[in-house]
Design a protein around this nucleic acid. Structure first.
Lengths: 248, 248
DNA sequence: CAAAAAGCTGCAAATTGTCGCAATAATGAC
DNA sequence: GTCATTATTGCGACAATTTGCAGCTTTTTG
C-alpha cells in the first residue's frame, strides 16, 4: 500500500469514526505503529487531523461553540484572572454558570490539575477543553435561559459534595441583604453550592455591588471572598471589607 | 509495446484500481522500472495521474476522500430528518452524543413538545435552544474526547428512566456482532440507554454498516429501528431487515 | 509512585528515484 | 540504401525516501 493511499485511508477512518487509535490502524493495515505515528504527524502538520496521545481526532468535531461575548469583557477578564489565582493543584472546585465563570474557565493555566463540579453547560464545555481538569457535571433539568441544571436532584447531588472552593458569578450583593438573585431555582442552587464548599468566592462587576434582588441566596457572612474589577482598596468596597470579606 | 500503448494501459490500470505500483507495472509489461517511471512522470505532468513514491494514484482518488466530509454532512442531515419524524408530542426521549444526534437536535420542529434526556454537552446545548423541549442532563464525570457524561452515576440515573425512544449515533454495526463501540464507558452508557427505552433507534451512515469494533454494546435483536442515508429498500440493508429491524 | 503504553531519536536496510551515458530503434534527408 | 539525427530504452552509480527496530523519554493510568 502506498503511503498516500494509507494516509487517505486514515483520513477516511477519522471522518468516519471521529477518532482513530494508532494501534487499531497499525493492525488493520499491517504496518508498524511507528509508520502510523509518522503518518499522523504529517496529517496533523498539514492540519487534516488533530493528533492526540494514542491516535488522532477529527478536526471538525470540537468546534460548535462560538465565542460571541460582548459586554464588559475586559472587566470580566480582570475578575477572572484574580479568581484563577485562588485555585491550587488538587482542589475540588464547584462553580455556577454565567459569563464570568466561563471566562475564568478559559483562563485556567494549562498545568493546573483539579476537579471541577458544575451544572452549567457552557462552563462544563470550557472545562472539558482543559487537558488536566476533571469535570463532573451535576445533571438535572436544564433551565433554558441560563443553560444550567436546576432542581432537587441537582441540589441533592451538590449537598453530597465537599468542595474546597465555590465560585459564583452573581446578580446582586449588598451588606444588608447579602447575596440575592431573581430566580428561585438558581438561588436554591447557589445556596446549596455555598454550603457544600469550605470557601465561597463571589465575582461581580462593580455595577452590581450594593444592589438587591427579590430572592435571598445567603447572608453576607457566608461569603469569604469578593472579587471585582476594581482595586481592592477602592472605597466602594469599604462596606464589604468591614463585614470581614476578603477583597481581591 | 509502443509507448503510447503502454501509457494507455497504465491509465487503464489506474482507473481500475485507483492506484498502481511501479514494480507491478514493470513486471507485467516487461519493461524496466525506469521506463515506467518516465511514463508516470509524463502522465503526471499532463495531469492524468498523481505520482507518488512507488507508483501513482488516480486523480479522482483524493477528491473521493475529500468529498466524503461534505457528503457525510448531507447524509447525516438525511438521517436526522428521518429520525425526527419518529418523535411525537409528549414523548420521553433519551439520546447519546455524536454529530448525527446533534444534527437531529437542530432539526426538531419548533412546535414539538417533548422531554429529552442526554449526557452529551453538545446535544444538551442544542436541545436547550429549542422553545418547547424539556432537557434533563444526566450528569457525571465528563469524558473529554466525546464531551459526554460517563460513569456509574450516569448509568444508575439512566436505569431509573423509562423512555419511549432511544436515539444513538453509532460507530459500527453488523448482524453478527451487533452494536459495537471502541470505548468501554461509552458502550456501557449506550447499553443502559437501550435498556431504559421501549424502542431503540440507531443512526448510521451506510459506511459503518457491517463493520465491528472491539467492545460489544448489545445484540442486533435489541435494536428496533435502523436509519441510514440510503433508501430503505437498498440491498445492503437486506441482512438487517432479515433480523427483523425496521429500516428507515 | 510505579508499571504500562505511547512517543521520539537515531540508525540501518530496503526500496525507489534521478542523472548521465551508452546502446538501440526509429525517422527522414539525401 | 545509406547516413545522420533523434527518440527511446536500459544500465550503473549515487541520492532520496520509506520503513522497522532498539533504546530511551514522556505520558497515562491504576
Amino acid at each position: 500500500m502506498l503511503k498516500k493511499e494509507r494516509q487517505a485511508y486514515i483520513l477516511h477512518q477519522v471522518s468516519l469514526h471521529n477518532s482513530v487509535l494508532s494501534a487499531d490502524l497499525s493492525s488493520s493495515i499491517n504496518v508498524s505503529e511507528d509508520t502510523i505515528r509518522r503518518d499522523l504527524n504529517e496529517l496533523a502538520e498539514s492540519g487534516k487531523v488533530i493528533k492526540v496521545h494514542g491516535g488522532a481526532l477529527s478536526k471538525s468535531f470540537n468546534s460548535f461553540y462560538l465565542r460571541s461575548d460582548v459586554y464588559n469583557v475586559t472587566s470580566k477578564k480582570l475578575i477572572a484572572e484574580k479568581a484563577v489565582s485562588l485555585i491550587e493543584d488538587g482542589m475540588f472546585v464547584i462553580t455556577g454558570g454565567g459569563t464570568t465563570v466561563v471566562e475564568m474557565a478559559r483562563l485556567l493555566p494549562e498545568n493546573l490539575k483539579a476537579t471541577f463540579f458544575t451544572g452549567s453547560i457552557p462552563a462544563a464545555y470550557e472545562y472539558a477543553q482543559h487537558p488536566n481538569i476533571e469535570v463532573i457535571f451535576i445533571g438535572d433539568k436544564i433551565a433554558k435561559k441560563s443553560q444550567i441544571a436546576i432542581g432537587g436532584e441537582a441540589i441533592t447531588k451538590i449537598k453530597h459534595i465537599k468542595a474546597d472552593l465555590c465560585f459564583l458569578g452573581i446578580n446582586a450583593i449588598d451588606t444588608e441583604h447579602g447575596l440575592t438573585d431573581n430566580d428561585w431555582d438558581i438561588a436554591q442552587l447557589k445556596n446549596a453550592m455555598i454550603e457544600s464548599a469550605s470557601k465561597t468566592v463571589v465575582m461581580s462587576i462593580s455595577e452590581k455591588l450594593n444592589s438587591a434582588q427579590r430572592i435571598r441566596v445567603c447572608g453576607i457572612d457566608e461569603i469569604d471572598i469578593l472579587i471585582t474589577e476594581l482595586e481592592p482598596s477602592h472605597r466602594i468596597l469599604d462596606a464589604f471589607r468591614m463585614n470581614s470579606l476578603t477583597i481581591l
